[in-house]
Write a protein that binds this DNA or RNA. Sequence first.
DNA 1: TCAAAAGTGTTTTATCTACACCCATGA
DNA 2: TCATGGGTGTAGATAAAACACTTTTGA
Lengths: 237, 237
Amino acid sequence: MDERLARSIDVGLSLVTVDLAIFTIRNETLMVLLIERGVEPFRGCSALPGGRVRKQETLDQGARRELLEETGVDGTRLHLEQFGAFGDPERDPRGRVVTIAYLALGADLPEAVGGTDAAHAHWVPVEEILKTPTSLAFDHDRILDDALERVREKLEYTTVATVFCPEPFTLSELRKVYEVIWGRELDPSNFRRKATKAEGFVEPTGQQRTQQAGRPAALYRKGQASFLTPPLLRSAS
Amino acid sequence: MDERLARSIDVGLSLVTVDLAIFTIRNETLMVLLIERGVEPFRGCSALPGGRVRKQETLDQGARRELLEETGVDGTRLHLEQFGAFGDPERDPRGRVVTIAYLALGADLPEAVGGTDAAHAHWVPVEEILKTPTSLAFDHDRILDDALERVREKLEYTTVATVFCPEPFTLSELRKVYEVIWGRELDPSNFRRKATKAEGFVEPTGQQRTQQAGRPAALYRKGQASFLTPPLLRSAS
DNA sequence: TCAAAAGTGTTTTATCTACACCCATGA
DNA sequence: TCATGGGTGTAGATAAAACACTTTTGA
């Protein structure tokens, strides 16, 4: 940040950034994409990817652009959603920086990308980060906490879980998403009943997939609905 | 906004504001506090109250300060919550202004206040604004829509409804809050059962209040819980 | 024919809805 | 004693949780 910017911030303006909590599921584990910071402050620390919002773009566009730069994902078959703004005066030692936090959910997101900022991007199990209360730069621990809670809630009342599954998927795969994110097991038969009953959640493709063992599973794709009625409550079954 | 600010914005910084959707219930009607703008742009238009976030305050503090300036309410017995950030480049004709939107919910909020900005503050029925799609300045129609939807959701899963009731309150008064905000009637006996069963939602004071007619109603105060378990679904009873 | 995973059915239990009914007060 | 709103009870319908059971595949 050059001196002109610093002086401007002093006048009462803010730098506005977007930060992204990008989640995917790999090996039945919820992972979040972190970068290793190459510059001060918090050089060498892990942080959520993000960056400045440009002059001519909306916040959503900024988030989508950063996402592309960090992961190479173009945003199809991916859920992107703003979930909070963080602007404590001390959250960035360089001065007032207000960040708009987004969460991104997707299936099969790539390992890393050769982009400039993302040179040191890597997937980390969420559980591992939560163990240590202050493992991330800035207030990113707090942001990650909020993002995770939001995702857990969203699984209850919306159909987003399907974006974690490459299409077509089986109901067992979809159930696994819930189990991984909620950290508990669900009854397979009751889950099946609820998932198929909820209007527009999943629709059968008519095809099957045969596994290593056992009866072949019917394949589904995501339905058109975005809200789950009735909801799938965490507290239940 | 002076020229120095304008030039700074040009550099890529933003003005950051908070805007408030302040709701209360008067005469069994959901009301929102609007101000009449005294300056360009949108001079003469109604708008949500709000203002710049100061250099040394958090976003929450900024929202609380604006709230105090606009309504004279000090924030006790009042729910204040951030619910979104709005930052389209064209949302303010003066240049890039990112606003952090808050909703405030309270009982018996005062009619108006002699503060500087709030000289023309007045309560308006929400329904009246929603009739006309573009009755507010900037993107405040959109912000109000989002705020209202958030409030409706919050009544389902949290105990916030109690902040609309001056304490102590009767269960009928609390039910009326739901009916006004959801725009539908609820079965009094089923509502009672659910409200009293939900752990920490309301607690009896042991006192009664005698109305104009009918049996005196038991009085309650809000409980300690902030989440409603089980939830009170809009779709139900 | 056995193991493994998919998928169906059923029993028990809890919950919700709708509504009847009783209670306590002022007029 | 009647009107009015507060509050309780309950029958029938609905849905949820737990789990037994059947189906279809690979080995």
